[in-house]
């Protein structure tokens, strides 16, 4: 334990409103949910000394709610709960696949989707799936709630559209309308090993085709940029086009403009880019 424990304080407020009030009193109060990220920093001596506000008991932040057009996954939902939910499995298979590969079971039992988003690791497993589903983040604050498209939420490495006093309240996923045509979804995490791994490259993709023509496409990546991203310019050159080997080749070239992988302790930029291209190729060729 590298942190000096007596200099850390944990508190909780009884109610959700009191929690939001407390958070708005100053930047030094950090919300604490499942702890699977913060406690690792704590042990390593990398967590700044201060006050932590336990939010894990707040029922306003808990549960998965089925609405007619949306699935509402509240922030404290753990990845185990996400993995085990029948609607997630049926209608949001990318998120189901992601939930299965988050850490391992003991982590999934504690790791929350809200914490995963707020921790903003570029290597997070859930976010690429959320990007493919055009997730909307509902943000709560003492004064006002608001909603942000998840693809606009991250601005830079660990810089996000979340102000002091604000708390991620829920993730909203739009449930698909019925569609005549072919829908394909693909999730692949290349980790350092097959379980309990941080990703080197994470790829989530969703495409809707009608007679070989791309009606809608989402390509999302983890560990390939300072935050989870969609390969938007690559999506644009595929949008509305008929898939062909030539088009796939163009897409792969374009992909390299959308992504900015780095060398780090786990992998190299060159490897990451090559694998990202290979996975895209595999996905698109599977749609031919």
């Amino acid at each position: 334990m590298k942190s000096y424990i007596p200099h850390f304080l944990m508190l909780k407020e009884k109610s959700f409103n009191q929690t939001l009030e407390k958070l708005s009193t100053g930047p030094g109060i950090i919300p604490f949910a499942g702890g699977t990220d913060l406690m690792v920093l704590f042990e390593a001596g990398k967590l700044a000394e201060g006050t932590f506000l336990d939010i894990s008991h707040l029922k306003e932040l808990a549960g998965i709610y089925e609405h007619k057009d949306f699935l509402e996954i509240r922030a404290l939902t753990t990845y185990s709960e996400i993995k085990n939910h029948p609607i997630v499995r049926r209608e949001f298979p990318l998120l189901y696949e992601a939930a299965k590969v988050v850490g391992a079971r003991a982590i999934q039992n504690r790791a929350t989707i809200g914490g995963n988003i707020a921790n903003a690791s570029p290597a997070a497993d859930g976010p690429p799936a959320l990007l493919c589903y055009d997730a909307i983040i509902e943000i709560a604050a003492a004064k006002k709630n608001r909603k942000v498209p998840y693809c606009d939420f991250h601005k830079n490495y660990k810089v996000m559209d979340l102000k002091m006093g604000e708390l991620i309240k829920a993730v909203w996923l739009r449930r698909s309308k019925s569609f005549t045509g072919v829908k394909k979804e693909f999730y692949h995490k290349v980790g350092t090993r097959k379980a309990q791994a941080i990703s080197k490259v994470c790829f989530a993709a969703k495409v809707q085709l009608s007679q070989g023509q791309v009606q809608e496409i989402r390509l999302a990546y983890g560990s390939m940029a300072p935050y989870p991203v969609r390969a938007k310019s690559t999506e644009r050159i595929l949008q509305g086009e008929k898939l062909s080997s030539n088009l796939i080749q163009l897409a792969i070239t374009q992909l390299q403009k959308d992504l900015s992988p780095i060398d780090d302790i786990r992998s190299t930029a060159k490897y990451r880019m090559q694998v990202a291209c290979n996975l895209l190729k595999q996905f698109l060729e599977g749609c031919l």
């Binding site: 090993r193 097959k194 379980a195 309990q196 791994a197 941080i198 302790i265």
Partner: peptide, 16 residues
């Protein structure tokens, strides 16, 4: 040694 964490020095898990 800079990858001196179990997270970053990889030994096989049961899935490997």
């Amino acid at each position: 040694m800079i990858n001196n964490q179990m997270t970053n020095y990889i030994i096989p898990t049961s899935a490997d």
